[in-house]
Design a protein around this nucleic acid. Structure first.
Lengths: 207, 207
DNA sequence: GTCTATAATCAGATAGAC
DNA sequence: GTCTATCTGATTATAGAC
């Protein structure tokens, strides 16, 4: 009927294809979405392959196993977060200004890499991969905590709350966003600035 | 050798017994600790019985199953949280004062019922029990969100951050405490007030 | 690249002896 | 109350046909 039919094979690679041609990256996205819905441990390879629309065996043709999917996802999240610390405004200036910048950027990365960061924040430490990710996370948090300490020593943040506690509350507030933020909602662009305002100035009206 | 030997059976019920005489409540505490360490789905009944020092079969003699353990734990956490909303200072006064009171009490309940609240905050919704808990949690959060809205309408909290966003950040900050707080550390008594100060006034210095 | 079939292991749960 | 032994089903992963 249609002489151009053989081309449809290539066309599947474009958007709008009935069943996408998968590569490692797109299957990772599918897997991470499932991990976040059910939890990593509760998600079987069967669940993943069904979500991709292929059989378990076909799925294994593309990926090497469940834990490698996890590692790739966690790596992407961690790389995004650590890249912030290398940016110019995160490395120079008053501690409190660097802190403000990092918090804003952290919210932005969280929005941009939501599924990957979400997965990262739910890791428990059951496997070597998870413990590796937890350690890198702890290292990131320690950098923030040190910055809060410096800002407190310079009188740039309040002294009546222990700086270690303040740092944990700050990180906790930012991280909690993954529990409810969904992209595409109105007001998403204002979120980083809203978080900075709320964290630094509190919820009470200006005084 | 010792004519009083039979008594040792009763003595095991006291503190310092080598292997405690278990009842449903003490096994629940053991189970919740394991759930929080490894995650609910990654924890097997074998893990639980080993943690209790008995076999899987003996463990089943005391409890009816894994999901019932989960339900009992989640119920305890939820009951603790909802009880706050019935207290006098949570029900009368200016919205912002009620809010402040609830936040302080929420931190206190979180400290007192740490393992149970921790488990509650990690539930994903895979089973009917988990979905039931998630719905009760959402109902609790909705009460807080409504209170923030009222406080905003009365000009008692800042208007330049959306009240729904502010409410989520507030709840997120409080809930994030389970990720790092451990009882018995110095400064634990000051935590509720530190959280109230940080959330309401921010991390910047006064004035 | 996708499939069916299956291996090997581990999970939650129970039976029945002591 | 605790044990050993076992059932049943799900899980990760692989073999080999098309």
């Amino acid at each position: 009927m249609d002489p151009a039919r053989p081309r449809s094979r290539r066309a599947r690679g474009q958007a709008g294809a009935r069943r996408p041609v998968y590569d490692a990256a797109s299957l990772l996205a599918v897997a991470v979405a499932e991990f976040n819905t059910r939890g990593y441990d509760a998600t079987s390879m069967e669940d993943l392959s069904r979500a991709a629309g292929i059989t378990k065996s076909s799925f294994y043709h593309h990926v090497s196993g469940k834990e490698d999917l996890l590692r790739a996802a966690l790596e992407r999240a961690l790389d995004g977060l650590f890249a912030i610390l290398q940016e110019r405004h995160a490395r120079s200036g008053r501690p409190v200004d660097r802190l403000r910048y990092i918090v804003r950027r952290q919210v932005e990365v969280l929005q941009a890499e939501l599924p990957y960061v979400t997965l990262l924040l739910r890791v428990r430490g059951n496997t070597a991969t998870e413990r590796w990710a937890l350690e890198r996370r702890r290292s990131f948090d320690a950098t923030i905590a040190e910055l809060v300490r410096e800002a407190a020593a310079a009188g740039q943040v309040r002294a009546d709350v222990d700086s270690a506690v303040a740092a944990r509350l700050l990180s906790g507030t930012v991280n909690s966003i993954v529990e409810w933020y969904r992209p595409g909602r109105p007001g998403a662009g204002e979120l980083p600035e809203d978080v900075v305002r709320t964290v630094f100035e509190g919820v009470l009206p200006r005084g």
